[in-house]
Design a protein around this nucleic acid. Structure first.
Length: 452
RNA sequence: GGGGAGGUACCCAAGCGGCCAAAGGGGGCUGACUGUAGAUCAGCUGGCGGAAUGCCUUCGGAGGUUCGAAUCCUUCCCUCCCCA
């Protein structure tokens, strides 16, 4: 256990939370001087930790560092319902095998932030599945429809005459029962879990347990600044993403998100953050510089200082100075695949649209055509010798130059084909710059060769 | 159980026999500008395609009427409202 006094622990734990229900109850628990059981409920989906859901994990880690025990409750059974808060779909029940396999996955994934020695992973099907219908009715009798309809999303749907299925109402109850089953002292969650977590408190009290303390952490807005961060919404920064990508994503953040991100995703002291906020408002601090510091802090947290510095340099070089990245992903495309799509005209001449599709830079040939027409596609011919850092030439604007360089052929009506060099037998492509550089927009870039 | 209103592209939402691949808005994408931000402006936004007054697929599902259907008919599925 920690040597910190209960008050000091509380002080630490308070930081970065939105609400603790109640602080006095937490203090009482801390004063008992025993390791508390701290619960965190998780979706049964494959874990995809991003800096958004990392917020609550770091909080949990803090509990662990103070000597408490983390219990990850995987909602494999509640997954049958799907948390009604989202436009969730129900998921098929997991087989015992899958459960076992997943348990390992969760432990691995969460070990990136949590202390494995103080983490227990449990699945709620363990206690929810055995309940009989009788049990369920008894359980359901503990809650009223009115109480359940207080939940924002239920209330909203009710108001708007959108369907609310009966079993959805059971979700908060199931989750509450989890707390009973593991005799949770504390339940952690994002603010969107407030209702569910409070339900746990109520149910525990009903059933004669000391009610859990609810600790709510903020929901981190996603990169779009509108919705909460979520992988499926494509607005997330994954904690295992490469440093460069992480840094870049932070830099493209809306200005209005900087301060919240500083607060929730970094360890920068609060008073420094306040100072920055002031300076920004006063115009003494360029937002770009503040954002660079943010990008640095976040990247360093997951990749270390050195990697963060490299990412920063690379960023400056590519986006400020508009040079090519230090390393461009190499892609060797299969002749067979291209041929089967009718994209390969002669041994090395490939139609541009299917090429972009093949690279994943365009969704369809039509999409590719649109990109080309709108000047979104850039090509840079392979360098013979050292050609210096030439910029990719834009299509269709620079078509004539590319044609004179012998890498492009105009098929008329906006159609093009390009000359893609050979990758050579087997192995990786030869000299780095011998490939055709293809770029769409700023981010999508690859050096391309043709293979078998 | 009775009565009524609905289900249109990623979302909202017009259309109610041909000029509908389907108005408008949102979102997304590309370009200009810039700090890879925001705001603004321009273009694009089903697939195929050597940019066709071209072909294919799409308006809850399945059939049907018609030269022709998102639009009319039959039937099935789903949602909401009012009454019980």
């Amino acid at each position: 256990m920690t040597t910190l006094s209960p008050h000091q622990q509380l002080e630490q734990l308070r930081r970065g939370t939105v609400e603790i229900i109640t602080e006095s109850a937490l203090l009482e628990k801390l004063e008992q001087g025993r390791p508390l059981r701290v619960k965190l409920g998780l979706d049964p989906t494959a874990p995809d930790i991003h800096i958004g859901n990392a917020v609550v994990l770091h909080k949990l880690r803090q509990f662990q560092d103070l000597g408490h025990e983390a219990i990850l409750v995987i909602g494999d059974f509640t997954g049958l319902i799907g948390d009604p808060s989202g436009k969730s779909e129900t998921r098929p029940a997991l087989s015992p095998d899958e459960v076992q396999r997943n348990a390992a996955t969760y432990r691995d994934q969460y070990s990136l932030i949590l202390d494995p020695a103080r983490t227990r992973v449990v699945f709620n099907s363990e206690w929810l599945r055995p309940l009989t219908f009788y049990d369920v009715i008894r359980l359901a009798s503990r809650a009223t429809v009115h109480r359940l309809l207080e939940r924002d999303d239920f209330a909203k749907r009710f108001r708007e005459h959108l369907p609310i299925h009966l079993h959805e109402l059971l979700y908060p109850l199931c989750q509450a029962y989890d707390s009973v089953a593991i005799r949770a002292d504390v339940e952690l969650g994002g603010t969107d879990q407030k209702f569910n977590n409070l339900m746990g408190r109520e149910l525990q009290r009903e059933l004669g347990q000391d009610p859990q303390v609810v600790v709510l952490t903020p929901l981190l807005p996603g990169l779009d600044g509108v919705q909460k961060m979520s992988k499926s919404l494509g607005n997330a920064i994954g904690i295992t993403e490469p440093a460069g990508a992480m840094y870049g994503k932070v830099m493209s953040l809306a200005d209005s998100l900087m301060i919240p991100y500083f607060e929730y995703c970094t360890l920068v002291p609060l008073d420094e953050i306040r100072a920055m906020e002031q300076a920004l408002r006063a115009g003494d601090l360029h937002p770009r510089d503040a954002k660079q510091r943010l990008a640095n802090a976040i990247t360093a947290r997951y990749h270390g200082d050195a990697a963060a510095r490299v990412a920063a340099d690379e960023f400056t070089r590519v986006f400020r100075e508009r040079e090519l990245p230090a390393s461009v992903p190499a892609r060797v495309l299969s002749r067979d695949t291209l041929r089967s799509k009718g994209a390969l005209d002669e041994p090395n001449w490939v139609r541009l649209e299917p090429l972009l599709v093949e690279l994943g830079f365009a969704a369809s040939n039509s999409d590719a055509r649109r990109l080309i027409r709108q000047g979104g596609v850039g090509l840079q011919p392979p360098a013979h010798g050292d050609g210096g850092a030439e910029q990719p030439l834009r299509l269709p604007h620079d078509a004539s130059r590319l044609i004179s360089l012998g890498v492009l052929e105009d098929l008329g009506k906006g159609g093009f084909r390009v000359c893609v060099p050979d990758a050579g037998p087997g192995g990786p492509p030869p000299a780095e710059r011998s490939g055709l550089l293809v770029r769409v927009g700023r981010r999508q870039i690859a050096r391309v060769w043709l293979g078998a």
